[in-house]
């Protein structure tokens, strides 16, 4: 008799978890399944109507070209992303990229608040198997710590997460969705992935993974939307 109760309980818990998983993954959300182009074609900016409150933005800087594209992207959409009173949380693993960000963005937009979070690089060149295993674990843990901090601040108001190519973004995105899954009070993380401009015919590895996790998945060349129906293309954004 008792065994049956336990069994039914487990089954219910399992069902709840599945429903939860479905509810947080992007495929089942109306706004992100790639078919809402009707209102998108209205060439009116929502800026005047909606984007009045300060926004909390998390972005991740990789290195080199990825950083360059991210800087261009937020600069091009500064009206929304770098508006007065916004808080910009900057994740970085490469010191040079951070300096570049400080020089070209942070010092130019004094009306925004900037917070910095250092992420450990998952892989160093010439590391042995054991060393890489340890460093991957360390990366997982430190990035979890950062993501917990960042996403707990998301409960206060409007927020966005902006990611592009670097591999660490896979870990970051997974942690964000995991926290949503575990914490029922957690709002959607609003993950936006923008594929690199250098990708014309195939997605990058990071892109292939984040295709299933990001709430909005953007590519910059029309060619990529035919094999990847969830991907949206608005032309070159950087």
């Amino acid at each position: 008799m008792k065994v049956e109760f336990v069994f039914v309980g487990l089954l219910l818990a399992y069902a709840a978890l599945v429903v939860r998983l479905i509810s947080i993954l992007p495929f089942f959300k109306g706004y992100s399944n790639g078919f809402d182009n009707q209102d998108g074609s209205l060439k009116v900016s929502l800026f005047e109507h909606k984007a009045k409150r300060p926004l909390r933005l998390f972005l991740f800087l990789g290195s080199g070209g990825h950083t360059g594209e991210m800087l261009r992207l937020i600069e091009n959409y500064k009206r929304v992303l770098l508006a007065k009173g916004n808080t910009i949380c900057v994740g970085y693993s490469d010191q040079k990229s951070k300096e570049c960000f400080v020089r070209s963005i942070a010092s130019e937009y004094p009306d925004c608040r900037f917070e910095y979070y250092q992420f450990k690089k998952a892989r160093e060149v010439n590391a042995s198997l054991l060393q890489s295993l340890i460093s991957v674990l360390q990366t997982l843990l430190t990035s979890l710590k950062n993501v917990i901090k960042i996403s707990s601040d998301f409960r206060q108001g409007p927020h966005l997460v902006l990611l592009n190519g670097p591999g660490t973004c896979c870990i970051i995105a997974t942690w964000f969705k995991m926290l949503e899954f575990l914490n029922f009070a957690q709002p959607c993380s609003n993950l936006v992935y923008v594929e690199s401009l250098a990708r014309i015919n195939t997605l990058s590895l990071t892109g292939k993974i984040l295709y299933y996790i990001a709430d909005v998945f953007i590519v910059q060349w029309q060619e990529l939307t035919s094999q990847n129906p969830r991907a949206k293309c608005f032309g070159i954004l950087v």
């Binding site: 209102d39 984007a51 992303l81 409007p158 709002p187 954004l237």
Partner: peptide, 22 residues
């Protein structure tokens, strides 16, 4: 130009529409 109104709207909708809160 890099600025695209539809993409901007997409960002605003995602960030500021409270209906996407679970």
């Amino acid at each position: 130009q890099a600025h695209n109104v539809q993409f901007e709207n997409q960002l605003i909708k995602l960030a500021f529409t409270s209906s996407n809160v679970n």
